[in-house]
Amino acid sequence: MKSRKFKVGFFTILLFVASCASNPYKNVTVVFGPVMDDRITLVSAFKDLSKGKLYKAKVEVLKNYLSGLLMIKEVKGSKRVIFTSETGLKFFDFEFAPDTFIVHYVLEQLDNKHVLNTLREDIGTVVFHGVENAAIVQVKIKGEDALVHRTKDKEDWMYYYYQDERLNKIERASDKKKKVIITFENYEEDIPQLINIVHKDFKMNIELTYIKR
């Protein structure tokens, strides 16, 4: 119990220190936009999803660990994402349709509003769900050489970072704080070989490693 108390205390201090730390978005200046035409476009991490992309997925939530296989594919204009265990048990089957989100299947143990919302947001962001209709602005962030693209998703700001015309990071943030950071790394043949989703407000990480087939 003692060590638990210590941990709680420790994290409170950490949180306090973190909240005192400087707001990373304090010096954001809108340079251009908002526009909804072709002058600024957001380019997805996936050039072509007509063939399914398979990733080994590792999910860490608090001290729990779950691994499996994540398949992403464009089917009839929707992005379909199916997550199974290595042994074939289906965890969920999501459809990100142009105007809506459909849960075709979810394992009973995952069927919880919070879990589904988090997964929907995280995976939806990875597959660029709803980005087509978003108003985009270009912003200058202190410390970043290139301009950063910004959109709004409900209450959150979404920041898109590009390097050599490739998407390498998406941040979900409030006015002051980063909430989720998604990185896309090691592109080979227009496919990011590693995708990392890290939550800053609670311990949850999703690591996706591309599986060549």
């Binding site: 729990n64 779950l66 048990l89 143990q109 919880n112 879990v115």
Partner: peptide, 18 residues
Amino acid sequence: QILKDMLNKLTLILVLVA
């Protein structure tokens, strides 16, 4: 806590199917 419980149960089931 809900999430944690669910993941525990889920791990069991995933093993079942394994």
